[in-house]
Amino acid sequence: MTSTHARLALNLLPKIGPIRVQRLLEVFGTPEDILRAKASDIQQIDGFGNDLASTIAHWKKHIDLDRELRRIQEENLTLVTPEDSVYPDLLSEIHDPPLLLYVRGQITERDRHAVSIVGVRNATAYGLATAKKLAFQLAQAGYTIISGLARGIDTAAHEGALAAKGRTIAVIGSGHAKLYPPENAALAERIAESGAVVSEYPVDYPPDKTTFPQRNRIVSGWSSGTIVVEAALRSGSLITANQAMDQGRTVFAVPGNIDRPSSHGCNHLIQQGAKLVQDASDILEEFNVLPLNIISSADAPHGGHRPDLSEQEAVVHSALSTDELHINEIALATNLPIGTVSTTLMKLEMKSLVRALPGKFYVRLV
């Protein structure tokens, strides 16, 4: 039996879980050795009574490992474990990292640089637009966007990253064959084509009231920071934010209308010290990094970086100067439509080449 198959077996066993498996690994060394252990030896470990010890020692009576392996193949999934190089470093550092991840699509090294975006299911138009904008900007800057595939803010975040042709990962609170919500099945397929849909649950495990809060620790634990766009005072999004804080991650919140219940959670987070977010530059400044999708250049000032520019970006960039220019002046100078100029300026801003000023004025930084 391989280490991956042993982890899969442990993951299938009832009432075991990641924390108990970590204790077992400290004693027995490997997942394979855990499954070979005698019940009497397992009982010597604090927290393992007769029933748990017997379940582990006689694991073949409690699960059908061959069936699960067939279901994984039928669903075209792969398994990623902490022993694999692409298993996220940050996720491995949390208190209860998943034993393994069922993956549709592909996890890459680039996904180590990730930001999560979460919020309410019944989002306002403002919340949906904001989530999509932030995801678009951060994905263009090179970050992988993590969210939970739920209705509302999660969906908007995934859509924003896809629109930017960036990477996004959906962490679901069920097995892959029981995807929830079902209306997001097509979105999940699109995500898997360029990113990944992941779960820690067996293929046919249904969603319930416990799986989503459990799922949220992966969303926050995978990410350098968690952005809450809209949230009520009692919501799963605040659970995710609290888990992020417990995991030592930075929490960001988008302020909202004080009369709107869906803003109360975000405004409360800001009162408690979460970083107020207006656009992606607030997140990049907090991490004190330039966008990740840029390449080194010897002629960049102060040892900085210069990105590759599209022809359109180069035209707009060359029209700018260190003096303030209004967007209308830039449009006249480039002979481009105002909408095209606006989109291009946003891309240049995300590449740390341009700074937006109040009143739709812009200055060139590099």
Rank of each mutant, 00 (worst) to 15 (best):
D46S: 15
L99K: 08
Q278N: 13
V366S: 13
Y180M: 00
R7T: 14
D41G: 05
R23M: 00
R7I: 02
P207V: 01
F212N: 00
P97W: 02
S220P: 01
N122F: 14
D208E: 08
R110T: 10
N50V: 10
G225Y: 03
F252E: 04
P301A: 10
D154K: 02
L90P: 13
Q44E: 15
G148Q: 05
I283V: 15
H264C: 09
V341L: 08
V171S: 10
D96H: 01
L52M: 13
P202N: 03
H302Y: 10
L10A: 05
T30L: 01
P181S: 01
L179R: 06
L179V: 05
E74V: 05
L79P: 12
G359I: 05
M1W: 06
Q278V: 03
A6S: 14
S54A: 06
S237M: 03
E200G: 07
T78K: 00
V363D: 01
Y180A: 01
S147D: 10
R151L: 12
V80A: 00
E75H: 12
K360T: 03
P202M: 01
F48A: 02
A319N: 09
D111K: 04
L134C: 00
A53I: 10
D279M: 06
R151F: 09
S199V: 04
L128V: 11
S321T: 14
A114W: 02
H62Y: 09
D154E: 11
T81F: 07
L13P: 00
A298T: 11
K351D: 10
D84R: 07
T343E: 14
F28W: 06
G273S: 13
E26H: 09
H326I: 00
S310I: 02
S310H: 03
T322F: 12
P261G: 08
A123M: 00
D299A: 10
L91H: 03
D154I: 03
V115S: 12
I56L: 09
R167M: 04
K351I: 01
N11K: 12
D259A: 15
L292S: 01
P182K: 08
R70K: 08
V251M: 00
T211A: 07
D64G: 06
H58S: 04
M1P: 02
D282A: 06
G359E: 02
L91P: 07
L79N: 08
L13I: 04
P82F: 04
D259N: 15
L325A: 13
D33H: 08
R110F: 08
V80G: 02
L290E: 12
A188M: 07
I94Y: 08
A331M: 15
L99Q: 15
R7Y: 15
P97S: 03
P255N: 12
L269K: 04
V228F: 08
K165F: 12
L309Q: 00
E109M: 14
D51L: 15
I327L: 07
L276N: 07
L79H: 13
A157P: 05
L52S: 06
L90S: 05
A9Y: 02
G152C: 12
H268W: 03
G127Q: 06
S342V: 00
L79V: 15
A131L: 02
E230I: 11
N216P: 08
R112Y: 11
P261T: 01
L25M: 12
P97A: 03
G175H: 14
L25W: 14
V86K: 02
T250Q: 11
H176C: 10
E200R: 10
H302W: 12
L309S: 02
E189M: 06
D208T: 04
L238P: 05
T81E: 09
K347I: 06
A53L: 09
R67E: 09
